[in-house]
């Protein structure tokens, strides 16, 4: 079970309090109607799935309830950092 540092609670908490939220920094377009079918497909379904550094979203569902972002190595599962939603990509 991972320990995840919640940037809002400012402490490491057990994984069972969290829910995974998929890849981070995929913002919903302000006006989706301006997106072509290809752009919309990209937004909906295409993910980077890297081996190594992955920017991803987590929610401290059974804690403070906040969504936040994390950088995790998909090979080792080691978290490099976590940061609040809305902060610049790290």
């Amino acid at each position: 079970m991972l320990l995840i540092h919640c940037p809002y609670c400012e402490e490491a908490r057990p994984e069972v309090e969290f829910a995974y939220g998929g890849e981070a920094h995929i913002a919903r377009p302000v006006d989706p109607s301006t997106y072509s079918d290809e752009q919309w497909e990209e937004f909906l379904y295409i993910r980077s799935n890297p081996r190594g550094r992955h920017h991803e979203r987590w929610r401290h569902s059974h804690g403070c309830g906040r969504f936040f972002n994390a950088v995790r190595d998909t090979v080792t599962d080691v978290f490099e950092t976590t940061y609040k939603a809305g902060e610049a990509r790290k």
Binding site: C9, V16, E17, H62, G63, G65
Partner: peptide, 8 residues
């Protein structure tokens, strides 16, 4: 003592 948190 005096602390509270949501957890499972």
């Amino acid at each position: 003592v005096g602390r509270a948190t949501r957890t499972v």
